[in-house]
């Protein structure tokens, strides 16, 4: 029953992602679609975020380190009721609160301004460090792209999180295998990702299917039991998930569909495939 509810959220979010990038005529659909289940699981089953505490730091927080996937963040904030669906069509337009990459000063519910890869995870480390220092119980979540792992700063942050034993930090890697120029292993191979994080002192959870929300929820629950070290969930996902002509195509990293393509994709999503 619950899972079917989450599935409906995921379908709604995918439709909104497609509508946003189509209306904007730019943006990043592929890596937004691949992360839908991760954000659904976090915002609907893990984080204690509400309309009342939206602007507070006295709650769990999420940093979208792969800031170009902003449509999935806006979509989940909309799905939670923090953002009206009408506003989604302003995405990337002049005067909009929905910037191309998320700005915490423009939109309530965005916990950190991101967009330049590698920096979000460091900011998340800072938040987790602050929560530790002030003995606050809230957890910090962050989502990295797999291509983002090519940024050296990610590994500076990984070293730091482990050094300060930040067990209140949970990082996801959206392991869809593709980046803007092609296959991550052809561009600059970041694998084996699990062994790298292990070597940096993290608890590593690998998900066979990061588009299966039950697996994501289970991983979040396991992470809460890990003490003295941060946890990373390496979630194998499908870039462009849910839209057959986008799936596993790196060309859909940063290109908007046409109006016709968008309609076709939405029909497919409404047909029950997700």
């Amino acid at each position: 029953m619950l899972v079917s509810k989450y599935k409906q959220h995921a379908v709604n979010m995918r439709k909104n992602i497609l509508k946003m990038v189509t209306e904007a005529k730019s943006g990043h659909p592929g890596g937004s679609l691949s992360a839908v289940e991760i954000l659904t699981a976090l915002y609907f089953t893990q984080m204690d975020i509400t309309q009342e505490n939206l602007n507070s730091i006295e709650r769990d927080r999420f940093v979208l380190s792969k800031g170009h996937a902003s449509p999935v963040l806006y979509a989940v904030l909309c799905e939670k009721g923090f953002l009206l669906e009408e506003e989604l069509c302003t995405f990337r337009k002049i005067g909009s609160r929905l910037q191309g990459h998320p700005s915490m000063r423009m939109l309530d519910g965005v916990d950190m301004s991101t967009g330049s890869l590698g920096q979000g995870i460091s900011a998340a480390v800072g938040m987790a460090l602050s929560n530790k220092a002030h003995q606050k119980p809230y957890r910090i979540y962050t989502l990295l792209g797999d291509g983002e792992l090519q940024e050296g700063e990610v590994w500076e942050a990984a070293m730091c999180a482990s050094h300060y034993q930040l067990d209140n930090l949970l990082a996801f890697v959206d392991f869809n295998g593709l980046q803007i120029d092609g296959n991550i292993c052809d561009i600059m191979n970041p694998t084996p990702i699990d062994e790298k994080f292990k070597a940096f002192g993290w608890h590593v959870i690998t998900l066979e299917d990061g588009n299966d929300i039950e697996q994501v929820i289970q991983a979040c629950e396991e992470a809460k039991t890990i003490k003295g070290k941060p946890t990373v969930v390496i979630a194998k996902t499908v870039k462009g998930k849910g839209v057959s002509f986008m799936e596993n195509q790196y060309t859909w990293h940063g290109v908007a569909p046409s109006v016709e393509q968008c309609e076709e994709a939405i029909q497919e999503l409404e047909g029950g495939r997700s």
């Binding site: 920096q119 979000g120 460091s122 900011a123 998340a124 938040m127 220092a133 002030h134 070293m159 730091c160």
Partner: peptide, 26 residues
């Protein structure tokens, strides 16, 4: 002593960690 954190020789990470701590009311 508990308000000083050495970030090691990693200035880029240090600045963004500082940002995250500042975003936490510090």
């Amino acid at each position: 002593p508990h308000q000083h954190f050495n970030m090691g020789i990693a200035e880029s990470n240090m600045m963004a960690v500082a940002a995250g701590m500042a975003a936490s009311g510090n």
